[in-house]
């Protein structure tokens, strides 16, 4: 075995893989300096726990489900109102 490639060259236990990669995640991903055409990368870690997925802040209301806008004073509404009024007026004439 002495002449064979060093067996230490690759990690051999699961624990080593996980620990090593977990550290490298922290080191290599400090800021989201991302290219727009980034492809989905391979994960640097094989497994993680529920706690590792948690992000700070509100995680319960990610999606706005009631978003209707009742404000009719903005530009678009004002223009529509004007158009409708014009057509209404021409009907009466």
């Amino acid at each position: 075995m002495s002449a064979a490639p060093a067996s230490g060259a690759a990690p051999t236990t699961k624990a080593t893989v996980a620990d090593k990669s977990a550290d490298s995640t922290k080191e290599t991903k400090p800021a989201p300096a991302l290219e727009e055409d980034d492809e989905f990368e391979d994960f640097p870690v094989e497994n993680w726990t529920q706690e590792d997925t948690e992000v700070p802040g509100d995680n319960t209301h990610l999606w706005e489900e009631s978003w209707d806008d009742d404000d009719t004073s903005e530009d678009f509404s004002a223009q529509l109102k004007e158009e409708l009024k014009k057509v209404e007026a021409s009907k009466k004439r």
């Binding site: 995640t25 991903k29 989201p32 991302l34 870690v45």
Partner: peptide, 9 residues
């Protein structure tokens, strides 16, 4: 994973 920004994005 919370730190895997590329994948989350």
């Amino acid at each position: 994973h919370a730190q895997c920004i590329n994948q989350r994005r």
